[in-house]
Design a protein around this nucleic acid. Sequence first.
DNA 1: CTCCTTGCAAACTATTTGCACATGT
DNA 2: ACATGTGCAAATAGTTTGCAAGGAG
Lengths: 178, 178
Amino acid sequence: MSPYTAASLKAELNSRGWRLTPQREKILHVFQNLPRGNHLSAEELYNLLDGRDEAISLSTIYRSVKLMARMGILRELELAEGHKHYELNQPYPHHHHHMVCIQCNKTIEFKNDSILKQSLKQTEKEGFQLIDCQLTVMAICPEALRMGWPSALPSNWSCTRVLSERMQQEHLDNEEAN
Amino acid sequence: MSPYTAASLKAELNSRGWRLTPQREKILHVFQNLPRGNHLSAEELYNLLDGRDEAISLSTIYRSVKLMARMGILRELELAEGHKHYELNQPYPHHHHHMVCIQCNKTIEFKNDSILKQSLKQTEKEGFQLIDCQLTVMAICPEALRMGWPSALPSNWSCTRVLSERMQQEHLDNEEAN
DNA sequence: CTCCTTGCAAACTATTTGCACATGT
DNA sequence: ACATGTGCAAATAGTTTGCAAGGAG
């Protein structure tokens, strides 16, 4: 899972009858230069390239990330936001898991090596080869509990902390896209 | 997390200013009578009720399952098929995890108590209350490996076993909807 | 020079929403 | 009574696909 070069990507693609195109090379390049822990949706990747005057059509983006995920080059993340995110697949130790409040959607990332171990155990048992593993923990956050979950929470309630964090995150996302 | 009765569902709803309607009661009832290990998508739930001449509109189905998931009554499953499934939230020991081949989408369910323990550890550390946890293991199945993954696999290859299993599953799904 | 790949626009799927009417509390 | 819930149809978001033109091997 070492970093791909254009040449090794080409070899990998060609061996299955696929081709190395400028688009695929650019996409790989973006992910290789993405700060650790970051991940992009198809749309974010599109905007990022568009901003650099290296625009690639959205359909090609979708086709490429799906292909590269299937090849094991990219990792597909199912985050709470309802659309998929991608990042370079560098299994260990850069992967993390998610804990999300089912009441307000507040999400916390965490690392845990023992989960990887259990996944490995499971793949070995069935003769699979591990590529990636992701644990999602659904829970109720302290603020919701303090408000009296499950019964005493108004229907439109949301953790106060969540809003400001979301705004901060969006701010970061915007910077990153420039 | 004991089975809800119409009365306890009503209490739970009312305490947050919501109401017990025949639709919500029917939906709860369906999930309570669902064989262990089964789960329904919004559409499947719609069809099931429709077949019983107890039709509920799709939007109401969507609104209800989302509400009940947020209340902690239902559990929302993100399976590989691209749409959400729901089942009664009876945390332990009926939950399971998934291992899926990123090459052919073959999916295997498995149980593992240690994952629940790790999730519990994480929720306690952050002061959350655990509701549910789901591990997804992305891997390459033995057949794909035998075919020479990652390089020597034709672009449209799919495990032979997968197709027949899918057909069997679809067959079961159809029976269940009647 | 063949077949894969791209870009565009249109199609699609799962889900959400606006609104008028109906119904629990 | 009055706010919440329902059903319908239309809207939306994310993603996929058909097709003609372009480009890699």
